[in-house]
Amino acid sequence: MGAIEVGTASWTDRTLLASGWYPASADSPEKRLAYYAKQFPVVEVDSTYYGPPAEQTTKLWAERTPSNFTFNIKAFSLLTGHPTKVSAIYKDLRPETDKKNIYPDDLPPQAYEEVWSRFLSALTPLAEAGKLGALLFQFPPWFGIRKSNKEYLLEVAARCTPLRPVFELRNASWFEGANRNETLDFLRNHKLPFVCVDMPQGHKSSVPPIVEATADIAVVRFHGHSDKWTSKDIHEKFGYRYSPAELEAWAPQLKTLADKTDKTQVFLNNCYEDYAQRNASALIELLAD
């Protein structure tokens, strides 16, 4: 069985800081990251979706964690075709526009290329320290199955080489009927890692929890099952605590998945108070049995 790493999608959420999960002695960003890294071997950095990281920041992350710790990085929103705040773009690359949000086509091609270059370059300290895991490319709900989108997945993989992108598809058309096997076969044929998601069902953005490996690494993300999934309040959306029974049902599935990969990464993204951290710790215990 391949290794299974379990972590969470945040270590700095304000509700987590207020929850009491961190000891009083962890009273600075440096100490909190150090404490987190003693509990879990991996973390997913989601803040990089909202704004690209500075190289100095990733250098500090590398310096403040043990040698065997891993950071997965969520791709900047502009690189996955999501609406992106103009204020989140590098200052010298911001277009002159009255729009609050822009898309890739709103940038000149040269500026778009520069965003890619700077985003990947900022991860160099983590890569050089051996602490950079996968790059999460989570695509928007309107990114459905079609030839041009498959080609973009290949383009992302090429742009990221030698770094490893993993792909979270949030449009159900990829998995409807015969499309499911077509999608998984496409990913396997090109050695593109698939991200399985556990999330509320019955919504436009819902995709089924397909536990499959398509490359030598697999990623599973737990979004919870909040009945307020469509809320604009991120804590209402992700404020869900998995029950022991739910986690127990997942443990054998994760072990089976790990049998098919060199490494399986599992992230609890139910980031409200200490829900994710408590659930991640419980899952680690279940996987150890």
Rank of each mutant, 00 (worst) to 15 (best):
G177W: 05
G177P: 00
G177Q: 06
A178W: 08
A178I: 12
A178L: 15
A178V: 08
N179V: 03
R180E: 14
R180T: 13
N181E: 14
N181L: 15
N181G: 12
E182S: 10
E182C: 07
E182F: 08
E182R: 09
T183R: 02
T183C: 03
T183D: 00
T183L: 04
T183Y: 00
L184F: 12
L184Q: 07
L184A: 02
L184Y: 02
D185Y: 02
D185C: 04
D185L: 00
L187A: 01
L187E: 05
L187V: 00
L187D: 00
R188C: 01
R188H: 06
R188K: 05
R188S: 00
N189E: 11
N189T: 00
N189F: 05
H190I: 04
H190Y: 08
H190V: 01
H190Q: 07
K191Y: 10
K191L: 09
K191T: 09
L192Q: 00
L192V: 09
L192Y: 05
L192S: 01
L192F: 01
L192H: 12
P193C: 10
P193Q: 06
F194N: 03
F194C: 13
F194E: 01
V195R: 15
V195P: 09
V195Q: 08
V195N: 06
C196H: 13
C196R: 04
C196M: 07
C196N: 11
C196V: 01
V197I: 10
D198F: 15
M199E: 15
P200L: 06
P200V: 10
P200Y: 06
P200D: 03
P200K: 11
Q201N: 05
G202N: 04
G202H: 10
G202D: 06
G202K: 04
G202C: 05
H203N: 15
H203G: 06
H203V: 11
H203E: 11
H203P: 03
K204W: 10
K204D: 15
K204L: 12
S205T: 11
S206E: 03
S206A: 07
V207D: 04
V207F: 08
P208I: 05
P208L: 03
P208Q: 11
P209F: 14
P209V: 09
P209M: 10
I210R: 02
I210C: 04
I210S: 06
I210W: 09
E212W: 09
E212D: 09
A213I: 14
T214E: 02
T214V: 07
D216C: 05
I217H: 01
I217W: 14
I217R: 08
I217S: 13
A218W: 02
A218T: 01
A218L: 08
V219K: 09
V219N: 13
V219H: 05
V220S: 05
V220C: 13
R221L: 04
R221C: 05
F222M: 07
F222R: 04
G224R: 07
H225S: 02
H225A: 08
S226P: 07
S226C: 02
D227K: 15
D227I: 11
K228N: 08
K228M: 09
K228P: 05
K228Q: 10
K228Y: 00
W229G: 08
W229M: 02
W229Y: 13
T230G: 10
T230H: 13
T230Y: 12
T230L: 13
T230C: 14
S231E: 04
S231V: 15
S231F: 14
S231N: 10
